[in-house]
């Protein structure tokens, strides 16, 4: 047994102090990172409750229900940030990345503390797969929510629809890695592949924006 709450306090305290000494986007990132860790803990409570209510095994709960709980809980603060603060897309992306990474970091910490970190190959796979998977899910979610925001007519169905893609992606990953063998190797590669696919258009957009900025400065 591990004391998840104590681990959270231990990791969060230096980050909380760091918030005082940082500004703007760094502060935003650190805050959302801590929030991601808290969400991870809360979703573990919820998943435990669902396991108790439905009477399913630990593995089945992780495969069938945890993705839904985790993605809904990750969506709530992002949705709050979008609706209440009305921020621009780049700021929302920072918050989403922070929440995704905070979630993945805390989950990995708890997992490694409970099952050991002696096998470096396994630790690498865990970091590359789960870490990236939560990041990709957060990015997919924020992409969908941004779309729903711009699409003002009936944004609620569009927002719920946007939640579905990261949930299925997460569920697919959990399902594939639940059984050892070929399916688990497939599961481990899916997040990295998706991250690469998402990175290519993102990089293109960033390059275009940089070129536009350089042109603008030249004309000035």
């Amino acid at each position: 047994m591990i004391y998840s709450e104590n681990i959270l306090i231990c990791i969060a305290i230096p980050l909380l102090i760091a918030i005082i000494f940082t500004k703007r986007s760094t502060r935003r990132f650190i805050t959302s990172f801590i929030l991601g860790m808290i969400i991870c803990l809360i979703s573990a409570y919820f998943s435990g409750f669902i396991k108790f209510v439905t009477g399913t095994s630990m593995d089945d709960t992780a495969v069938l229900y945890s993705p839904i709980v985790e993605e809904i809980l990750k969506m709530l603060p992002i949705l709050f940030y979008i609706v209440v603060f009305q921020q621009k897309d780049d700021k929302i992306f920072i918050v989403a990345v922070g929440i995704g990474l905070g979630f993945a970091t805390f989950e990995n910490c708890c997992y490694i503390l409970s099952s050991g970190a002696s096998d470096i190959a396994y630790v690498l796979i865990r970091g590359m797969a789960v870490g990236i998977m939560h990041l990709v899910c957060a990015l997919l979610l924020v992409l969908g929510l941004s779309l729903a925001r711009y699409f003002r007519v009936l944004a609620i169905p569009a927002g719920i629809g946007a939640l579905a893609i990261p949930t299925v992606f997460h569920g697919l990953y959990n399902l594939l890695v639940s059984k050892p063998g070929v399916s688990s190797y497939l599961g481990y590669t899916i997040p990295i592949l998706t991250a690469v696919i998402l990175y290519i258009p993102y990089r293109k957009v960033m390059n275009e924006e940089r070129e536009e900025l350089i042109d603008y400065r030249r004309t000035k």
């Binding site: 169905p157 719920i160 629809g161 939640l163 579905a164 569920g171």
Partner: peptide, 9 residues
Amino acid sequence: VAEMGECLL
């Protein structure tokens, strides 16, 4: 959830 997503989208 997937079916719900595809219908709502």
